[in-house]
């Protein structure tokens, strides 16, 4: 596909995160850290108010925005920082914007925000265009 600087894509990648979403990700990925599915453990082990989603679930959902936009085999790099935890009840919107295109590679700035506009994931992707 053709991309140019300033091109944008945005989509709601999950609405009203619930414990079933989180457990399904745990089962698929193999990450059974109790912080993500065991309410008592989340409170006792680390003082969290409840379970929270895997950061990698947010990254996977943000990755879905990228493949919906760019196709399944365009990515050359994809990296994120986890900036805030995602809690049950959150709704996430993933946004990408092309910031440079050079030698057939587009660099895309990424941010995924919750329903309060707070970023939960920030990062960058490079895609072949």
């Amino acid at each position: 596909m053709t991309l140019k600087v300033g091109d944008k894509h945005e989509q709601v990648v999950i609405e009203n995160v619930n414990r079933s979403h989180i457990v399904k990700y745990a089962g698929a990925s193999g990450d059974f850290n109790p912080l993500h599915h065991d309410e008592g453990a989340a409170q006792a082990m680390a003082g969290y108010p409840s379970v929270f989603a895997h950061g990698m679930l947010s990254m996977g959902l943000t990755g879905r925005m990228l493949t919906d936009w760019l196709g399944p085999v365009a990515l050359k790099k994809y990296g994120v920082r986890f900036t805030k935890q995602v809690w049950p009840g959150d709704t996430l919107t993933a946004k990408g914007e092309v910031v440079s295109v050079d030698n057939g590679l587009a660099t895309i700035k990424l941010v995924t925000t919750n329903q309060n506009g707070e970023s939960v994931v920030e990062g960058e992707a490079v895609a072949a265009v």
Binding site: L75, V80, F82
Partner: peptide
């Protein structure tokens, strides 16, 4: 990659 208790996953990067 995070961990039990106070370990958290801070960043993740892939090169394809």
């Amino acid at each position: 990659g995070g961990g039990l208790g106070r370990g958290l996953h801070a960043e993740q990067h892939y090169e394809y």
